[in-house]
Design a binder for these strands. Structure first.
Lengths: 138, 138
DNA sequence: TTATGTGCAAAGGGTTTGCACTCCG
DNA sequence: CGGAGTGCAAACCCTTTGCACATAA
């Protein structure tokens, strides 16, 4: 094993990293690296796209941000509200995101996998729908 | 609504489509479009990569094949064993895939989403681990 | 000073598309 | 014949990398 799930890496604090952290802290939805970079640039923060990618990647590795993939393969990031394992319910229309935990599901996944002889089980689960607001304005 | 989940599209039967269907039928694991194309080529079937992509996409749209994304954003496909909603348990080492259904999870997802005001709920769930064989040969 | 972090721009890699050609119906 | 289906290669797009420069410790 060479992976450290919640390993706290000691990265050197820099202006661009702070700006990125800020940007993430201010957003409630998942956003693409490009989107974040654009926002940063618009705000006057001079940060390179590569830097955004590199930091996002590092933070994801340390579990500081969640990463999920859109249907078309684009990675979107979001600051974790909690540091424990959780899943998301995302609004397809506006991107509103709610984090949820589900012990029942975790156990189910584990059990089902074990039932088929699998070990060292992990899983990905994303739920999407229409949030109350978006559903109402239809 | 413009999506037809299991809509049966009437595509014109062609040599390449047949080859692709064959290739998919013979595989038990998820494979990338490129991989499938290589296999097809190796078998002597002259099929263009673009055609593989186009058909795979069409079939996925009609629910004839399952599509999931690898962690690095690559799409991998597999012929569905069943036409009803299901999930997968995939071996990280060899790709062995088992399809499973889980009413409990379906209901849980629906309930959790509803609890937060979401409607028209959908979800994605993939489970991965090490199959018995691969775990043994470590 | 020295290793780490950053910017820029070029390179990568998977997927999509334009266009002319082929083949089913 | 007419249009769906194909092949090829160029175009796309997100992401990664190489390398020289800036900066935290």
């Amino acid at each position: 094993m060479s992976e450290h799930p919640q390993a706290k890496a000691e990265r050197r604090p820099t202006r661009q990293r702070a700006a990125l952290a800020d940007e993430l802290a201010g957003a409630a939805e998942f956003r693409s690296a490009q989107d974040i970079h654009a926002s940063l640039t618009a705000s006057g923060a001079r940060v390179g796209l590569a830097t955004v990618y590199r930091n996002l990647q590092a933070m994801a590795g340390d579990g500081e941000v969640d990463v999920i993939r859109t249907a078309d393969g684009e990675a979107i990031y979001r600051a974790c509200a909690t540091d424990q394992h959780h899943h998301h319910v995302v609004c397809r229309a506006c991107g509103l995101t709610v984090e949820v935990t589900g012990d029942a599901v975790e156990r189910w996944a584990e059990a089902v996998a074990a039932q088929h002889g699998f070990s060292d089980v992990r899983h990905t689960l994303e739920i999407d729908g229409l949030c109350a607001d978006c559903a109402a304005r239809r």
